[in-house]
Amino acid sequence: MKAPINIDFNQVKVGDELPPLFIEVTATAVVAGAIATRDFMPVHHDRNYANKQGAPEIFMNILSDTAYCSRFLTDWAGPEAMVRKLSIRLGVPAFAGSTLTYTGTVTAVSQIGTEGIVEISLRATNDLGDHVSGVAVIGLPTSITST
């Protein structure tokens, strides 16, 4: 595993884009996410049940959505980052067999003491539209600088 890199707060600017994250929403990914978050709702692991509910496939649970959002944020910001706020609106479902693309943009930068505060607007889209849209706030130690 390559050494994780912490972003330098002092160089973060409004308008910066986060590297996109692509998630292949396979049936395995849906089930793995549901069970790892201890969500046993049958719509997240039983296709017959999902069909009876009017869904063409099993679909991702919300706890997986928030999990991927936090991964998307810290993949970019690094292991010293602290996710302080995550506020998402749910749109179209993420059915097994689709692909999600996470994108995000820095919308505000501020500082509280030695903590750098970065606000990010983010969304996850698939071929049906916006699956998740929202805002996040992360904290970064201002002491970490990229030499």
């Binding site: 994780p4 793995a32 069970i35 790892a36 978050t37 999990a67 991964r71 810290t74 993949d75």
Partner: peptide, 16 residues
């Protein structure tokens, strides 16, 4: 164990 399971499910490699 539950954290490792979670990190694996979402392929989150954050070492913390």
């Amino acid at each position: 164990p539950m954290i490792r399971h979670w990190a694996a499910a979402f392929e989150d490699a954050n070492p913390v």
